[in-house]
Nucleic acid binder design. Structure first.
Length: 492
RNA sequence: GCCGCCUUAGCUCAGUAGGUUAGAGCGCCGGUUUGUGGAACCGGAGGUCCUUGGUUCGAGACCAAGAGGCGGUACCA
């Protein structure tokens, strides 16, 4: 008896959180990468590419989740039992690179980096497990001018990405202010205090979603959400909660007004006074350079979730309402952010190395544009040279080559189907025109060029298919030598 | 990770109280038109009804577990 052997067929499926990007989305991402990289390069930043994998201890303890180390990172052991991990951001690899090559590098070091990073987290709208960041960082510049430059850079990138004024805002704050507040209300400078501080950061991060009420609960004993899930709180006292919430709500409309409101909240704290001074210096530069026109704001409620920031922090927020496929409002989170991390390189070198940077979340930004229906018109396809006679491929290649030499995207049809299918192919590709050389044209040493855009327009006025076909609308013929001119005329 | 909802053709969905060969629209392929993308008309392909197990004479439908998707929450660009 013959037993039917079942051939194994893998189900074609994509890992969750990993997105295929094709057509418009891929083009949009590439354009955004180019725009951001162009801004950085024009400011004198040099490109640096590093590997996707790092030894896990080099990314190590500076993962955002200090309380859950290594979670959220894709990691495995190498042949020699060493833990390898896919990079989680572009900042940790930069710290490794700087520490490894410290002496010969120019200081300050200004570098930008482009590439995918990976996080093992639950995906959602605008949240992926693989996504592209474009970062700029300045290493070895301690003063607030470097931070101010990063903030202006962030605004420039948003502009270059095609946002109009008022469609985004860069919110600026300083970690030192919160440190001062927490110090004043008695959060200790210990391990335990660090855990508490992180919980406070994350609670404040949720102000826009949960409101002051929810955040107050997270600052205190904890909060139970609608689904019944409980989040442990930071355990602050009632006065502490009032102090922290009051601080986060101290933002005003102008840089000056906010600074004025923050100053008295710092009490006797020297760190706090220093933080306000830094913000004041940054604000002065933003004003002097004209970035205080609504593009930048001081907002004490911006803290950023990562633990490694030590000074000024900022976030680029979209101010355009986005909706999902069902028309419900969708939250995309920030499209970029950054700040100062003076201790990150010290892990390797023992001495603090001042550093500040900005990270542009290209994939999320593109997803937001997509949700907004703003990805722009589809790029026109190539001019398609029909392959009507299989033994004349060399002629077809020559024609496509001629068009390319004149700067036109052009290709020869590579399938095996007849003319009708080739026309459909060209249509689906968004080809602006096709070049038709069959038996008749060859015999007459001529070429026929059909303008598909015009043809599409004319088809709307023709009901009868006989007429549509025999009329051969939007089509011109001429001598073979005139190919380029015929195509150019058709595309005007 | 936790909680909730959902899963039938490529897509959007219908499928009556469990009862033969599971449907529609759109899309796709072909024909009318063997050298012409649209429209129209005609025809066709395409389904392990998410998976596994259970209840039943009989399950797309009922039950359980798992997977996947969506939303919230956690986390974050």
């Amino acid at each position: 008896m013959s037993k039917k052997v079942k051939t194994f067929r893998p189900k074609a499926r994509r890992p969750k959180g990993f997105e295929d990007r094709f057509g418009t989305l891929a083009n949009a991402e590439n354009a955004l990468i180019g725009a951001a990289a162009g801004v950085y390069a024009s400011h004198g930043f040099e490109p640096l590419s590093t590997s996707a994998l790092e030894y896990a201890d080099c990314l190590g303890k500076f993962l955002p989740d200090d309380d859950r180390p290594n979670e959220g990172v894709f990691a495995f052991t190498d042949d020699d039992q060493q833990w390898m991990a896919l990079r989680y951001d572009l900042t940790a690899p930069l710290a490794r690179f700087v520490a490894e090559n410290y002496d010969p590098l120019p200081k300050p070091l200004r570098r930008f980096a482009v590439g995918p990073v990976w996080r093992n987290e639950k995906p959602g709208p605008g949240r992926f497990r693989e996504f592209i960041q474009v970062d700029a960082d300045t290493i070895g510049a301690p003063g607030p001018a470097a931070d101010a430059e990063m903030i202006m850079l962030a605004a420039d990138v948003m502009d270059a990405a095609g946002l109009a004024r008022g469609e985004y805002v860069i919110r600026v704050n300083n970690r030192k202010l919160l440190d001062a507040i927490l110090g004043n209300i008695g959060v200790p400078d210990t391990e335990e205090g660090a855990v508490q501080r992180l919980r406070v950061l994350r609670a404040i991060d949720k102000l826009d979603r949960l409101g002051a009420d929810g955040v107050a609960r997270l600052l205190g004993d904890g909060r139970k959400d609608d689904s019944g899930d409980f989040t442990k709180g930071a355990g602050l006292s009632a006065q502490g909660i009032v102090a922290v919430l009051g601080y986060t709500q101290a933002g005003a409309d102008t840089l000056e007004a906010t600074l004025g409101a923050l100053q008295p909240l710092m009490g006797a704290s020297t760190v706090g006074a220093q933080g306000v001074e830094e913000l004041r210096a940054i604000a002065a530069l933003l004003q002097a350079c004209g970035y205080d026109d609504g593009r930048t704001l001081i907002d004490p409620s911006i803290v950023r979730g990562l633990g490694y920031y030590t000074g000024p922090v900022f976030e680029a927020d979209l101010r355009i309402e986005t909706v999902n496929e069902k028309g419900e409002p969708a939250r995309f989170g920030s499209a970029g952010g950054g700040g100062r991390y003076d201790d990150l390189i010290a892990r390797f070198r023992g001495q603090p190395v001042p550093a500040t940077g900005f990270s542009f979340g290209v994939s999320r930004f593109a997803a937001a544009l997509h949700a907004l229906g703003r990805l722009g018109p589809v790029e026109p396809g190539p001019v398609v040279v029909l392959a009507l006679e299989v033994d004349r491929m060399a002629d077809y290649f020559a024609m496509a080559s001629e068009l390319r030499a004149a700067g036109m995207r052009s290709e020869v049809y590579m399938g095996g189907s007849g003319m009708k299918a080739q026309m459909k192919y060209a249509d689906k590709r968004g080809a602006p025109a096709v070049v038709i050389v069959g038996e008749d044209e060859r015999a007459a040493n001529s070429v026929t060029v059909k303008n598909l855009v015009l043809g599409d327009k004319l088809s709307g006025q023709i009901e009868d298919n006989k007429e549509w076909r025999s009329g051969r609308p939007a089509q011109t013929s001429g001598p073979r030598e005139q190919l380029l001119k015929l195509v150019q005329d058709a595309l005007i």
